[in-house]
Design a protein around this nucleic acid. Structure first.
Lengths: 219, 219
DNA sequence: AGATAACTTGTCTTTCTGGTCAGCAATAAG
DNA sequence: CTTATTGCTGACCAGAAAGACAAGTTATCT
């Protein structure tokens, strides 16, 4: 019985492989369209066209727009939440932890610019679909991380800072390279931000944060 | 002749007063709606409803959506450009100039959160309506301001920094209090950000930037 | 007071959009 | 090989949306 169930889950037929591929392609396409237009501005038609399938076929895979949108958001958030907890790396020096944090946040902006933009649209719009998630998932993690930073301060490992606003600043400074990329491109006189630009940005932001915190190298 | 023209311009009849008031009300309402839904997601109907007039009447004042949207954007940008040039305050110490800059940027987030959000939606969407403006107006000012910061560095008034990315970070860190306010509210456990929150945020960001720059108080 | 201009609204048309449904085609299971 | 399941498409629908148009109302000018 158990065997049968497992087999059923694992079996990869021609169809199931195709399905997975197509779903992935749809999600990527949806990400692109939602990133540009936000939820209400995006049409199923446009997403279907981007994915090179018919609208009806898109609806076959994702029966309605809201569901598709939430899937796109969820994919992004799962990646973020996974990468963005201080606590998981406890035991190392603040310097190491914060450096890696900024680095990883910046990498997310570079690798998933569209997901970041979808998220940004959603938040700016007042997080209608995401409010509950932020309250139930992000806030607890935020509170823990703030406590950790406070303990660093009281141990004298970093300078006195406002921990909450430290996070807001780091998030804003790193996400801007995904969300506001067009503005940055224009001001830097580039057609798009390459690896090098992101490296420079990462160094600059890391340097800002480290200086602001006056982090000590030794515990 | 000249007199007549001037008189015509200045004369404030019942109608012209009403017109100005109504136009202003429409623009404020449009700002609210565009801030929430972005350009393509907003309907003229919704804007009309928010302004408490009929859709046809709205169209009488702003014959189409694009025009209305551009007016809202332009209003915001005019305010920003006016407040956000370093050069206008040349002669003072970097510390004073940068402090005021951060302060003013933060004040804009506090006073015009909706305008800021409209702008953010537009940029995230790839700045379809604003690209030209950014190239022709923002970039030259940016280049000048970057040069000024470079001169500060070479004079040893502030620490070695990446000037371009300094601006990106300041902008991101201050705008986040308008654009991402809902997220910040949730994480701070508040229903909305009050004067005090903005004051704390301003102090935190200012402190952050000043430490990063190691600005000297004396020229 | 009458003519003119400014304002407001109701009606209508066209296009777009999310979504349904019936039926056909391809694949998998027995 | 047959049957059942899954995948896909064309035709269709109801509601929303932008905006044109005409007709009526109100204010201003002479």
């Amino acid at each position: 019985m158990e065997n049968k169930l497992v087999e059923k889950k694992v079996r990869r037929t021609k169809q199931s492989i195709n399905r997975e591929e197509l779903e992935a392609r749809i999600l990527r396409s949806a990400e692109v369209v939602f990133a540009e237009k936000g939820y209400s501005g995006s049409s199923m038609e446009a997403i279907a066209k981007t994915a090179n399938i018919s609208k009806q076929n898109l609806i076959y895979y994702f029966p309605n727009k809201e569901l598709l949108y939430k899937r796109v958001l969820k994919e992004m958030l799962d990646i973020w939440i996974e990468k963005l907890s201080f606590l998981e790396t406890e035991g190392e020096t603040p310097e190491v932890i914060i450096r890696r944090y900024v680095q990883e946040k910046m990498a997310l902006s570079r690798i998933y610019p569209n997901g970041s933009k979808v998220f940004a649209h959603e938040i700016i719009s007042g997080a209608p679909m995401l409010k509950e998630y932020l309250i139930s998932h992000l806030k607890p993690q935020f509170d823990r991380d703030v406590l950790l930073v406070k303990s660093w301060i009281s141990k004298g490992l970093i300078d006195q800072t406002d921990p909450e606003h430290l996070f807001f600043t780091i998030w804003a400074a790193t996400q801007t390279y995904a969300d506001f990329s067009i503005q940055i491109e224009i001001l830097l006189g580039k057609n798009n931000l390459d690896q090098n630009d992101f490296k420079r940005a990462e160094e600059a932001v890391t340097e800002f944060v480290m200086r602001a915190l006056g982090a000590r190298k030794n515990i």
